[in-house]
Amino acid sequence: MIRRPFPGLSTLSAFAGRVKNPYYRGPATDHFDGVRFFSPEQPQDKGLAEFLRWQFGGGRKPWPKSYPSPFRDKPPAQVPGLRVVLIGHASFLIQVAELNILIDPVFAQRASPVPFAGPKRVNPPGVAFEDLPPIHAVLITHNHYDHLDLDAVERLWQRYRPRIVAPLGNDAVIRAGHPEIVVEVRDWGGACALGNGVTAHVEPAHHWSARGLADRRMALWCAYVLTTPAGVIYHIGDTGFGSGGIFRAVCERFGRPRLAHLPIGAYEPRWFMRPQHMNPEDAVRSFGLVEAEQALGHHWGTFRLTNEGIEEPLSDLDAALRAADVPGDRFRPLRPGEIWRPDAA
């Protein structure tokens, strides 16, 4: 029996003639009801009353206007082994097997549909756009503004003509503003060979999607597993912990990852954020379940999205690692421009 996370979805499907999905049409599955996508384990969406309770309930800790990173990177043109740098928030450059792969590249000043309001970045990208090496592939996890920067995707397309991979429906989101861009879409469980022995596998995550007020869950979201000659890399853009099954499944299907990118920020208040965002304790639990050799923490310290203070993810991660008896060097929270290489781990 399919568990639907949003009680209105069944009704919406019944009236599919009136409710249209502008991004994707396809048969119903165990995570698509004919109109909207959903995570089978994820509880029902919060409503307007709960959103307003969060927004006006207090408890939001102040952030500084500027939180510059001590790191800055100018990557080499290619790397035969493995080199990873955090550009900022959830944007990574992975250089592996002489391929340069960008995940969720966001260079915008705000994670917002408008340039004058919304979460503003408190540090510049750790790699300037002009300092990027030739980009071979761009992987998009979902269409929230802190993960999908359409202007950046268009600039990357004009400069490099990379392979662009995204979960179902996100091709329509990208091509609505830039119809010339070619986007390869996959469902959960799908894969895309990128060359040089590297394959991007599209895997489940507990999250949601929207670019506006009327398109909630109408494009799919995902995590990625990269199988590479340098080992397995597991990247999560956003997810709740759920039962932990999605992490166990990655380990069972792909083996123990060499590296996991795990989000550690945007998690307070827990009563609101738990289904969609892990906190550091959840991230450490997922690290144990996926059995990764190394984890890098991201999704913190660039855009203020939720209630916690800017450095709370660091202290909460430290506490969670000590409680789980995990050495701190096995789970590093990265700052923009900070590099990780396996030979320096």
Results as ranks from 00 to 15, higher is better:
213 L>I: 14
209 S>Y: 03
235 H>S: 12
311 E>V: 01
196 N>I: 08
128 A>N: 11
141 T>E: 04
149 D>F: 11
81 G>A: 15
88 G>E: 05
117 A>F: 14
156 L>V: 02
250 V>F: 01
312 E>N: 00
71 F>E: 11
205 A>R: 04
136 H>P: 07
178 H>F: 14
175 R>V: 04
300 W>S: 00
339 I>C: 11
284 V>I: 02
195 G>Y: 14
257 P>S: 11
248 R>N: 05
186 R>P: 00
22 P>Q: 13
236 I>A: 05
210 A>F: 15
59 G>S: 09
8 G>E: 13
283 A>S: 07
248 R>A: 09
108 A>D: 12
342 P>V: 08
98 E>N: 15
341 R>F: 03
218 M>Y: 05
272 F>I: 00
47 G>S: 11
223 A>C: 08
252 E>R: 12
32 F>M: 02
275 P>A: 07
132 L>K: 04
335 R>E: 13
77 A>C: 08
238 D>S: 14
155 R>M: 12
72 R>H: 14
303 F>L: 13
216 R>T: 13
160 Y>D: 15
26 G>Q: 02
338 E>N: 06
210 A>Y: 15
10 S>N: 13
173 V>Y: 05
288 G>P: 00
156 L>G: 03
285 R>N: 06
161 R>N: 07
278 M>G: 08
345 A>Y: 01
270 R>L: 08
287 F>M: 08
336 P>H: 02
37 F>M: 02
235 H>Q: 13
108 A>C: 10
313 P>S: 01
187 D>Y: 03
336 P>N: 02
230 A>W: 03
61 K>T: 07
175 R>C: 06
100 N>H: 05
61 K>N: 10
153 V>S: 06
118 G>E: 14
305 L>T: 06
333 P>Q: 11
297 G>P: 05
96 V>D: 10
90 A>I: 09
77 A>H: 12
308 E>S: 03
94 I>N: 01
340 W>S: 08
89 H>Y: 14
337 G>M: 06
71 F>A: 13
291 E>Q: 15
133 P>I: 08
173 V>M: 04
160 Y>N: 12
291 E>R: 12
211 R>N: 11
296 L>V: 10
146 D>L: 13
255 G>A: 06
279 N>Q: 07
289 L>M: 09
308 E>T: 01
254 F>A: 09
274 R>P: 00
248 R>M: 02
268 E>Y: 03
51 F>T: 12
194 L>A: 12
15 F>L: 15
254 F>Q: 10
100 N>C: 05
296 L>C: 10
186 R>V: 00
324 A>C: 02
271 W>A: 01
157 W>T: 03
3 R>A: 08
29 T>G: 01
333 P>Y: 08
63 W>V: 00
255 G>N: 06
221 W>R: 04
340 W>R: 08
283 A>Q: 01
213 L>G: 11
40 P>I: 00
53 R>Y: 10
48 L>D: 09
327 P>W: 06
10 S>P: 10
176 A>R: 15
234 Y>V: 04
258 R>G: 09
89 H>I: 05
245 G>S: 02
24 Y>Q: 05
38 F>E: 00
9 L>I: 01
238 D>G: 03
75 P>N: 11
251 C>I: 00
318 D>E: 13
129 F>H: 05
139 L>T: 06
104 D>V: 06
186 R>I: 00
117 A>V: 09
284 V>Y: 04
308 E>F: 02
159 R>L: 07
50 E>I: 03
122 V>M: 07
17 G>I: 10
106 V>S: 04
